[in-house]
Design a protein around this nucleic acid. Structure first.
Length: 305
DNA sequence: GGTAGACCTGGACGC
DNA sequence: GCGTCCAGGTCTACC
């Protein structure tokens, strides 16, 4: 079956899918040749489905094998809408930064939306998996979590959904540590899963809670394993852009852009984007760093243009 | 409030 | 093949 979902313009599926690396983390697969992706989801009924999201006129087309009940459609449509931020509006962002040459491209490319996993729980776990490791390590840990604890698709058991809080809450710490190879992150993920599964923590309720950024940041920082960087990344995913997710990469970029490759700290990174106010996170994220890309493989930096 | 050291894994490197 | 070192954020203890 197919389900059409409209997006608030301007919208580009390719831009969202490639907004960061989430599409490379299980249970996402993609992007495909047309910048669509597949995703495996365990519905609240326990049924596991796989769907494909592709570009369509004015939005996206969600396609999957078989049919969905009315209730399942009412679960999948908002999930995909959330994942892609289909209802988000970035016109104020474009107006605010349009005069900056390094951000002049954002409106034309419909940048602003960041790809999200279906649940905030999955996004928080994956954010913990990005800390203190390489991107390759993050991909490995996400895949191990899915393969070890996720429920398989009935018609393709090789593919599994991201484990629900209840499934991870029931996990053995040593399996998390040694089989999923989360290392010291294992107790953080287990505690988070147990708090959500027990009902103590209404993480999904945070998606729609109307809270000032500082309050939301405090909540995120209260989660074990979530520090300043992960909290700032999650705030971005939740539509709060008034902080910069400062990691070691941010130091390199800002050092090269404004400090003649001298060592910089958090303060310098924040200062560099302070003028962008409530858009500073997006300004950092979509800044034209194109001539810095050689940093990624550790090769020598090119001359600044 | 700031700082040092531990945490865990994978990869790079030297032998 | 083995051992050592290092990168990558967060936590805890301590000042």
């Amino acid at each position: 079956m197919e389900m059409m979902l409209s997006a608030r313009p301007p919208f580009s599926l390719a831009t969202v899918v490639n907004s960061h690396g989430w599409v490379q983390l299980a249970p996402f697969t993609g992007p495909d040749d047309e910048n669509g992706f597949d995703y495996v989801l365990e519905l609240t009924s326990g049924r596991v489905i796989s769907f494909h999201v592709g570009a369509a006129e004015g939005g996206v087309c969600v396609s999957l094998a078989g049919a969905l009940t009315e209730a399942e459609r009412a679960e999948v449509a908002p999930a995909v809408t959330w994942m892609l931020g289909l209802d988000m509006d970035f016109r104020d962002f474009y107006t605010a930064v349009g005069h900056e040459p390094k951000l002049a491209h954002v409106a034309e490319r419909a940048q602003g939306r960041l790809l999200r996993a279906a649940t905030l729980f999955e996004n928080v776990v994956k954010s913990i998996l990005t800390t203190n490791t390489t991107w390759g390590g993050t991909k490995r840990m996400a895949l191990e979590l899915v393969n070890t604890f996720g429920v398989p698709l009935p018609d393709d058991p090789q593919r599994r959904a991201f484990p629900t809080p209840a499934r991870l809450a029931a996990a053995d710490i040593e399996t998390l540590r040694k089989t999923a190879r989360l290392g010291y992150r294992a107790p953080y993920v287990l505690e988070l899963a147990q708090r959500v599964a027990s009902g103590e923590l209404d993480l999904e309720g945070w998606k729609t809670a109307v809270l000032p950024t500082d309050k939301l940041r405090q909540r995120l920082l209260s989660l074990k394993g979530v520090g300043p960087y992960a909290a700032a990344s999650l705030l971005m995913l939740m539509g709060h852009y008034d902080s910069v997710p400062v990691d070691s990469w941010a130091y390199k970029l800002v050092s090269y852009e404004w400090y003649d490759q001298q060592p910089v700290g958090r303060a310098e990174v924040e200062k560099a984007f302070a003028d962008w106010g409530k858009w500073k996170g997006l300004a950092y994220w979509f800044w034209d760093w194109s001539y810095h890309h050689s940093l990624l493989d550790g090769s020598v930096l090119p001359e600044k243009p």
